[in-house]
Design a protein around this nucleic acid. Structure first.
Ligand code: FES
Ligand code: FES
Lengths: 156, 156
DNA sequence: TTTATATAGAATCAATTTAGTCCTATATGT
DNA sequence: ACATATAGGACTAAATTGATTCTATATAAA
């Protein structure tokens, strides 16, 4: 598990679809049709993405949405951030006060460390990557160019 | 987001607690008290962990639970596997048939790749690690209010 | 200016999932 | 026997999520 909501999944599909033609303005209806979800649902997702500045929106006739930045500058982590609250594996890693015995619980720090490691992975994956075919059996090595950092929370 | 259920969180806390004294047999009541959750809840978690062979259980008077293996041989990924279904970020990465247009959706493979990367991170983290103090590095970041910037979320 | 088209945003409703509890059966030490 | 503990499943309540609907606003074109 460790699941993303279905809306986030759809949102990513939509974003990836848009990434194929970065300049193009897509209407909600157009995108709903393209990815196969109901219009109201696509609409809701798009509104959120626009509010979070991952998309630009154009109102009125012939309006629609387009990517706010080039595909390679939008990471999966950013999409997740936009569609699901703050990034974090447990509630307690995001906000305090949930540990039954808070002060005694030595685990929060560890969860936060895990968060950073996972986030780093997802920050290294861009929309552009999602449009490429998956290299068969190859481990990922690319890092998004907006975040090129090493040697922090070593796991691998 | 990308959240683990609260039960899994508790489960990890319990396992980490037990990891401090690997040979010791803990009763459910004892553990419930130690980590501060209600007995029925702790009990439910422990039963699951035992069924999934991460714990051994001893029935009868003076019974209880103990780690099935040394702490360094139990990873966080294993605990997650035990307490939450199959490991996967989206439904479609685990089981087919959820993509609205399945065959056209090029994203499933990518999710699966992401799954592998995340799993690898969580497989490299053991119960033993969770009992160590977090290697100091960066101070805890307070997530006070909404962060509007998309680049460099500043974990460094 | 009017009309058709589109998004903004909030509110709502239904369905699903999760958390938490309870009950009965079984095993074991004293 | 009896007290203590886990096994396993059933059950309830609460929270979350998914999906829809409604009103308001912006813009292009007739
Ligand atoms: S319960 Fe989550 S860190 Fe303590
Ligand atoms: S909808 Fe999840 S991969 Fe297509």
């Amino acid at each position: 598990m460790l699941r993303l909501s279905r809306l986030t999944d759809y949102g990513t599909v939509i974003m990836a679809h848009m990434a194929r033609e970065p300049g193009h303005v897509y209407s909600a209806a157009e995108l709903a049709g393209a990815v196969g979800v109901a219009l109201p649902t696509a609409s809701k997702i798009l509104k959120t993405l626009a509010r979070k500045a991952l998309l630009h929106s154009l109102r009125g006739a012939h309006g629609g949405y387009l990517l706010a930045r080039p595909p390679r500058e939008i990471s999966i982590a950013q999409v997740i951030d936009a569609l699901e609250g703050p990034f974090g594996v447990t509630e307690c890693s995001v906000a305090a006060g949930l540990c039954p015995q808070e002060n005694a619980c030595a685990l929060r720090r560890h969860w936060q460390r895990i968060d950073r490691a996972l986030r780093q992975t997802l920050d290294g994956l861009t929309l552009e990557d999602m449009t490429q075919p998956v290299p068969a059996g190859m481990p990922e090595r690319r890092r998004a160019q907006h975040d090129r950092r090493h040697r922090s929370d070593g796991h691998g």
